[in-house]
């Protein structure tokens, strides 16, 4: 019988129980302590350990942007972040945008412009757009498109996404 396919390095048991570590994440302004394995990504920690399933797993390889969250105010692909490296970090997910029952201007703009079809990429698009506006680097549609290129929408809602971001940008500028 053929050897079972394995790429396990010699002397290393991939089935050995992982040593788990306790970390604290400040998720949407709430401190959360969780116990994770070294390989747990921030995305999996949010979804599986904290039940925050608004953040989506698309490609799991940093190619689609569906998992975009803010870490200490900066947008990142949470699928390529090890949770163990994020102890004490401030994490903002789509669940943390609405305040006192009112949608964030970017969320409202996505509804106003019907800026999605299936909606799977939408939380990542919204988080990316929130960061794009706070970065202040995009002033026109060309620059919005370029700086949103890390968020793929396979339904092709791009024109409405750009329009929604322009509306939110104007709304947030008038009310700082």
């Amino acid at each position: 019988m053929a050897e079972p396919l394995t790429r396990t390095p010699k002397g290393w048991d991939r089935l050995s129980p992982p040593s788990k570590v306790a970390i604290t994440l400040h998720v949407n302004d709430v401190p959360r302590t969780l116990t994770i394995a070294s390989w747990t990504t921030l995305l999996d920690a949010l979804r599986n350990d904290l039940g925050l399933t608004g953040t989506k797993k698309g490609c799991d390889h940093g190619q689609c942007g569906a998992c975009t969250v803010l870490v200490d105010g900066r947008r990142v692909n949470s699928c390529l972040v090890l949770a163990i490296m994020m102890n004490d970090a401030r994490v903002t997910t789509v669940e943390g945008l609405a305040k006192d029952g009112a949608l964030h201007p970017v969320q409202q703009a996505f509804i106003d412009h019907d800026a999605f079809q299936c909606g799977y990429c939408t939380p990542g698009q919204i988080m990316s757009a929130v960061a794009l506006i706070s970065e202040g680097r995009a002033r026109n549609a060309d620059e919005i498109r370029e700086l949103m290129s890390g968020n793929i929408c396979r339904c092709g809602a791009y024109p409405r996404i750009v329009a929604a971001i322009q509306q939110a940008m104007a709304a947030m500028e008038s009310k700082p």
Partner: peptide
């Protein structure tokens, strides 16, 4: 190169 998310990381 890359995307703003990846460049941040």
């Amino acid at each position: 190169g890359a995307s703003q998310q990846l460049r941040n990381m």
